[in-house]
């Protein structure tokens, strides 16, 4: 298997039976994707498009109905390797309140590696390093419920980092945060990718968070309908709107201006780029 592939998803489907008529529904349909080591992949899609289902399959929390997923070459169906898979591809969830286990910040960060049976001295080092990376060292003896949303989410990230994963999957980590908390968490995620070389899969429905990704995948009704660089994806403003998604504000502005007869390039994503054009 190719060394550069962190996660290999091969023709994966996930079936569930509908509550209403017991018919078989597909949350994910015949999806294939290679996530490259060190890349920053963003997954977009409106509510119910199968994003969380996909994330849980990668983490081995649920099994695909069809197809295979390999994390670092390990098949998620291999029960003996499930702990390796979960500590290689860690997962951060949406609600920070519902993923913090302990009553003290550092105890919570230690929870994952404690489960892995890491010896105490190394455990201490991992916890301190992880808190340092997310810049929460000064809060290590605080009670989590007294922290802000952004701080809680960074503690949750530290808890995953302490397992020393190569890849981290974020399932809408900023959806419940205020704008300040969103920025804190996004800065942390970018830092993990750029400085620590972690492979990142970020699920979000904030388009602005997708701008700095290496690649963007758009899910619709469980199918991967678009895959490409942010520039390739966001220039297709009308297609995205059909899929019930927005585009970054700057792109939207350029799109409207072009409709009015201007002829700007259609792949402008950030304010700086727009300023340079003008």
């Amino acid at each position: 298997m190719n060394e550069d592939i962190m996660i290999k998803i091969e023709n994966v489907s996930f079936e569930y039976s509908s509550f209403i008529d017991e018919s078989i529904q597909l949350a994910v349909k015949d999806l294939s994707l290679d996530v490259i080591r060190g890349e920053f992949l963003v997954v977009l899609g409106h509510n119910g498009s199968g994003k969380s289902t996909l994330a849980k399959m990668i983490n081995g929390l649920i099994m695909p109905s069809k197809g295979e997923i390999f994390v670092n070459g390990l098949n998620t169906r291999d029960e003996d390797k499930i702990w390796d898979i979960r500590s290689t591809a860690g997962m951060v969830f949406q609600n920070p309140d519902n993923q913090i286990v302990a009553t003290i910040v550092e105890e919570d960060v230690a929870f994952g590696p404690e489960n892995l049976g890491i010896p105490q001295r190394e455990l201490r080092k991992r916890v301190d390093d992880a808190l340092e990376t997310v810049e929460m060292t000064e809060y290590k003896n605080h009670a989590p419920h007294l922290l802000s949303g952004g701080q809680k989410q960074r503690v949750a990230i530290a808890g995953i980092l302490a397992m020393e994963p190569d890849c981290i999957i974020f399932d809408e980590p900023t959806a419940m945060l205020d704008p300040v908390g969103r920025l804190e968490v996004m800065d942390t995620i970018k830092k993990l990718n750029k400085e620590k070389g972690k492979t990142i899969i970020l699920i979000t429905h904030f388009m602005d968070e997708a701008v700095e990704a290496d690649r963007v995948m758009v899910l619709n009704e469980g199918e991967a309908v678009m895959l490409g660089t942010p520039k390739e994806i966001f220039r297709q403003v009308e297609r995205l709107k059909e899929l019930g998604l927005d585009v970054p504000q700057v792109t939207e502005l350029v799109f409207e201006l072009n409709n009015e007869g201007y002829t700007f390039r259609d792949d402008v994503l950030s304010v700086e780029e727009l300023v340079n054009l003008l």
């Binding site: 860690g90 997962m91 969830f93 286990v101 929870f111 404690e114 489960n115 892995l116 105490q120 808890g159």
Partner: peptide, 19 residues
């Protein structure tokens, strides 16, 4: 919480170390 604990490799008390 149960899902998050499982994702963090929780599998009961056996083999767990403590900070």
């Amino acid at each position: 919480l149960a899902t998050a604990m499982e994702a963090r490799c929780y599998r009961g008390g056996d083999g767990r170390t403590r900070l």
